[in-house]
Design a protein around this nucleic acid. Structure first.
Lengths: 164, 164
DNA sequence: TGTTATTTCGCAACATTATTGCTTATATGG
DNA sequence: CCATATAAGCAATAATGTTGCGAAATAACA
């Protein structure tokens, strides 16, 4: 995995990305006005950013509470054997569970994987843990932290670090 | 904070939400075809879902690597005193840092807060930690886990649990 | 610094898409 | 089984996105 080639972006591109990060529902006209451009070059820039893969995808964020999904859990998982096969199998299983919003392979002695899962309630979580996670081969340790308050939750990146 | 009143949604609403979750860039026409509806009732349903707050917002997801943001870190933070003032101050500070994508107040003895932050590299992380996080009053313990691989990363909720 | 080449802009025309009014159909409840 | 309410589809309208092209600005080079 070679070092990613950085695209050359000017301030206008960054302003576009910044605006879209926080409000993906903006129309091209609104976006154009926000960044001080007429609609046509604005649209062309967005197309370029999509073609370059800098804009990965659009997501629609739903209200979990209003859908009866009241429990979010952060799970730390450790594996007994660190073989590529175990890891591949674990990742494949985990990726197939709709409850899993995030799964990262991380450094650290306490855990190999960090997961964020969403379920309706404790019962649902117990079921998920016992019937799905702990049944995956190689899972040796599980530690759960329950989310009490969501202070920050966004996909927005710190674009202030990006060179122009 | 009383129990959230669940909206009554039929299968069509759920199909709309499911489609939009994974592809917020769908046009209303594409969405209508996906869920087997003509464009007008489809548009009206989406408007209702937005008005009801079930659709919270649209986000545009960017490629961190292509922007030179190569390091994602999960930070566990513990506080020395669990007073509301300390917590409020911490949360206010944390919410103002663009590097912070997520911050949750969680249960557990190891940590009070779990953060996910994005920075360009180790240097940037060190700077963030020393000049921002550890300077917040009350922060007594910090443990960092570095993300090596992103297995799953989505905002999509498990709508299979939602009653129709 | 003058000149050329390249890029990006904005206008206007065109194409596509979203939205609204209204009628018809489909459920719901008495 | 009829009355009422809810949602669907069609067609017209409104709004929005997109493209070609000439002008302007910017950058590159002599």
């Amino acid at each position: 995995m070679r070092k990613q080639e950085l695209a050359k972006l000017d301030r206008t591109d960054l302003r576009i990305l910044e605006a879209l990060q926080h409000n993906g529902g903006l129309t091209n006209q609104q976006l154009a006005e926000t960044v001080g451009l007429s609609p046509s070059p604005c649209s062309r820039r967005v197309q370029k950013l999509e073609a370059a893969g800098i804009i990965l995808k659009r997501e629609t964020v739903l209200d979990a509470r209003k859908l009866g999904l009241d429990l979010t859990v952060i799970i730390q998982i450790s594996m007994d054997r660190h073989t590529p096969e175990r890891f591949a199998n674990f990742e494949e299983k985990v990726a197939s569970y709709p409850e899993v919003q995030q799964c990262y392979l991380v450094t650290g002695q306490e855990a190999d994987y960090l997961l964020k899962v969403v379920v309706p309630d404790i019962d649902g979580y117990q079921h998920f843990l016992l019937n799905k996670i702990t049944r995956i081969e190689g899972v040796s340790g599980v530690h759960s932290s329950f989310v009490m308050r969501r202070v920050v939750d966004t996909a927005a990146l710190p674009l202030n670090y990006v060179e122009t």
